[in-house]
Amino acid sequence: MKMLIEGLRGLGRETQAILTRLGFIARFFVALIRRTPESFVRASLTLREIYFSGVLSLAIILVSGLFIGMVLALQGYDILSTYGAGDSLGVLVALSLLRELGPVVAALLFAGRAGSAITAEIGLMKATEQLDAMDMMAVDPISRVAAPRFWGGMISMPLLAAMFSAAAILGAYAIAVPLIGMDSGAFWGNMQAAVDVRVDILNSIVKSLVFGTLVLLIAVFEGYDAKPTAEGVSSATTKTVVYSSLAILAADFILTIFMFRGV
């Protein structure tokens, strides 16, 4: 009986801790949004963050995009040609990239490349009491440290996702036309007939914006909330990558229900 009550208490404590944390994240998000103007007035701070999260992620995004596009072309052609539908390769590649792979994989890479760096940086600033020092000097650490990183990433994310999709489609083209010997007109023509600018491309951008919000909110928050020890910073960085990957995939499922539930 006593054990049962203890167990229930533990469960209650856990639930309460999770709820409190969720509430804290929501409050932090509101605080970030309220400090939006400041990160655009002091644009040099935000530009610096676009450099770190966007420009430095270019290589990994473009190279992975190219490879994913090439693999999609090889695999897709192999299966489609069994049904005599090899000409639809362009459609398969473009739709799978724009609707799913582009935003999702770009966001996962972004979480690993930029999100973890943001968490580690903010966490270390906290561990070395730089954030407290700012507070002492009446400098708001959220508007000075957190908001520029958030908005820098928010600007980078959709651009990176678009570049990922573009690189992948070019990679697929490079495999399909010169290597497999598909007709270039069929590749582009079928693709253009099937891809809808509003349904596919706009939704792709919306997805990348949502994923960007999730990744950056988690990254900035985990850094800000990290325990000020070496161990705390490392566990916060791990949490950023794990949580944002899960959040991206879950959000992708929910968004896909709304966007492509069939006709």
Partner: peptide, 19 residues
């Protein structure tokens, strides 16, 4: 350069892929 590249990619998607 990054922003221009991103916009070029978006234009490519809109014009060449999405027609």
């Amino acid at each position: 350069i990054f922003v221009v590249l991103g916009l070029v990619a978006l234009l490519f998607l809109a014009l060449q892929v999405g027609n």
